[in-house]
Amino acid sequence: MSKKVLIIGAGVAGLEASGVLSKLGYNVTIVEESDRIGGKLNRWSHLFPSRRPASEVLEHLQLNLDPNTVIITNSKITDIAVKDTSIEASLNTGKHIDADAVLISTGFELFDAKKKEEYGYQIYENVITSADLEKIFKEGKELTTSKGKAPKRIGIIHCVGSRDEKVGNTYCSKVCCVTGVKQAIEIKEHLSSCEVFNFYMDLRMYDRHFEDLYQEAQVKHHVQFIRGRLSEAFENPDGTVMVKVEDTLLGKPMKMNLDLVVLLVGMTAGNNSLFKKQLRLETGTDKFLVPADEHFKSVSSKQKGVFFAGACTGPKTIENTITEARAAALEIAGYLKN
């Protein structure tokens, strides 16, 4: 009888690992908290840097799923334990699952922009998040101000909830900079006469093609990049938003009115308390799970039979998540063979 793997979380990491594990001959059960698979990929319109439709990636992940894979949605793990060589898990539905290995692919949460009170998310009418903007693009809706007008000037705010000790997140979320550049271009493509400003501290264009996207934004679309973190935002009575930043490359404070503000929300760790308590897994100061070794066991935990893939161990791109999911599948296969 082939061995069983339990995957927690049916996002990019969980789905990709599931496809590989099935091909290797294992029985896979995926437990998913929400009502559908695909995780946050369901919420994105187009992906950086190639601007491929997110739905295309999701379709690909679904095609790779084995028809015999058991997918349990709308369910939460309430208890989990490693017993000798097996894993026993209970769900909130009363169901019990046992497996020979478990893959934690629970991903990340989006930073709650309300915590940056001074930015006025859900207080000011024309402040939205990058996730809200993706939703607008995905649903094919028109990008308008709260009063239904075409915005003439949009500001995209980098590092919302990242590199910010005040909200408890000192790390870089890695994907926001390039998302901000991608969204700036998308806005210009929708509304060519709209001025777009990106307010950044550092532009972290580290990966392949990212720098190209940045140059495209500047040269082709005349997106303006202003180095300075948003200090405070105020809503004018006409609904426009006044922002205060320092133009740090000029060493001068600056104010400007924007018709729409987009907050690039970072990644925060999911709720790992169950894993910490029952599996004795560690989390770092950033609250993400810590793998057994940063270089050589990046997809293994310190607990026997428990593995990681994706953003549960820190902010990652979708590309990196897929690579990691495949690595985790192989690591699990190696563990189950011995």
Binding site: D247, L250, K252, P253, M254, K255, M256, N257
Partner: peptide, 9 residues
């Protein structure tokens, strides 16, 4: 004192 803030608008 003169305001040194850039008034972009």
């Amino acid at each position: 004192s003169k305001d040194r803030q850039i008034n972009f608008d």
